[in-house]
């Protein structure tokens, strides 16, 4: 049984509209999404609503998911790659309560995957939608905080500021010192924040068969990478883009191809490395382990 039916089953709340937002708001968001898909990587301003979850905790992703979710869709929610962190659980419960949709932890079975900070290790397929929660949609915000300025830079495709920043990293450290939220160029036109995924995940953005939608609630922006769109991580010819590597494999499933979290096991410096993607890890460990973890939460 791969469905994750949480204990204390959640009834759909009849007092709220399907997926919480009213239909006109959903339509407004879908229009913004359409525009975003038409201009890959371009940030579309939208009338972000005040959600019953705090800003910075996924309000943008939640609004995007709420606008595209249908009653027969199967939803998966992850945070840091895991279905079981409290924030992922909370958002999944929100949609169970407001939309009564089926939920899963299985990446292959999900129609919509809402994520914070990771792209699943299991390759996505056509027809799937990955919804990213985005804290800071403007890739150049830390270099130029004024939107009025960054908007112009995007309009003119004037990304010198970003290249200078990356060059200065190389001058200081010998290589680019950005490890997550690593800027990408979408469809050879817009520089885009991939959200704070580790740069390990950046190659998965490129030519993905799935539709990738990005929602930033607090900053009121939506953007998208349509299926099979070229996404390149910024780099220089003599300093090509590289992803993180680990010296060992996952301590639980042995994978050497996944992003590993470091877990402290005692207070004498003992540590182990395990997959951050919990579904990927448990499926590699076999069905027995998976069912044990599902019972626990």
């Amino acid at each position: 049984m791969r469905m994750c039916d949480p204990p204390g089953s959640l009834e759909r709340d009849p007092n709220v509209n399907f997926a919480y937002l009213d239909e006109r708001t959903k339509r407004m968001i879908r229009r913004a999404l359409l525009k975003a898909v038409c201009i890959p990587g371009h940030q579309v301003a939208f009338g972000s609503r005040e959600m019953p979850l705090p800003y910075g905790w996924g309000t943008g992703g939640i609004q995007v998911t709420a606008s595209i979710l249908g009653p027969r869709d199967v939803l998966k929610v992850i945070d840091q790659g895991s279905d079981d962190t409290v924030n992922a659980v909370n958002i999944r419960r929100f949609f169970q309560r407001t939309a009564g949709v089926a939920v899963t932890t299985d990446t292959t079975r999900a129609d919509i995957i809402q994520t914070r900070h990771r792209i699943p290790e299991t390759p996505l397929r056509e027809g799937q939608i990955l919804v990213f929660q985005v804290p800071a949609p403007e890739p150049m915000q830390r270099l130029e905080p004024r939107q009025s300025e960054t908007r112009k830079m995007h309009g003119l495709a004037e990304y010198g500021l970003m290249h200078v920043k990356l060059y200065e990293d190389i001058a200081h450290y010998g290589h680019i010192a950005t490890t997550y939220d690593y800027p990408v160029l979408v469809n050879n036109r817009y520089v885009m924040s991939p959200s704070p995924i580790p740069k390990f995940d950046n190659p998965k953005l490129n030519m993905s068969p799935a539709l990738q939608l990005f929602g930033a609630g607090r900053e009121k922006r939506i953007y998208a990478v349509p299926p099979y769109t070229a996404v390149t991580s910024l780099a220089f010819d003599d300093h090509p883009f590289e992803v993180q590597r680990w010296e060992s494999g996952c301590a639980l499933c042995g994978s050497r191809a996944s992003f590993l979290d470091e877990v402290l096991t005692d207070d004498h410096g003992g540590r182990m490395f395990v997959c951050s993607d919990s579904d990927y890890c448990t499926s590699r460990q076999g069905a027995d382990v998976r069912s044990v973890i599902s019972d626990g939460g």
Partner: peptide
């Protein structure tokens, strides 16, 4: 939101 897990970013 800084209370939320940032294991992945921190690991990086």
């Amino acid at each position: 939101h800084l209370k939320l897990p940032h294991y992945v970013d921190f690991q990086s």
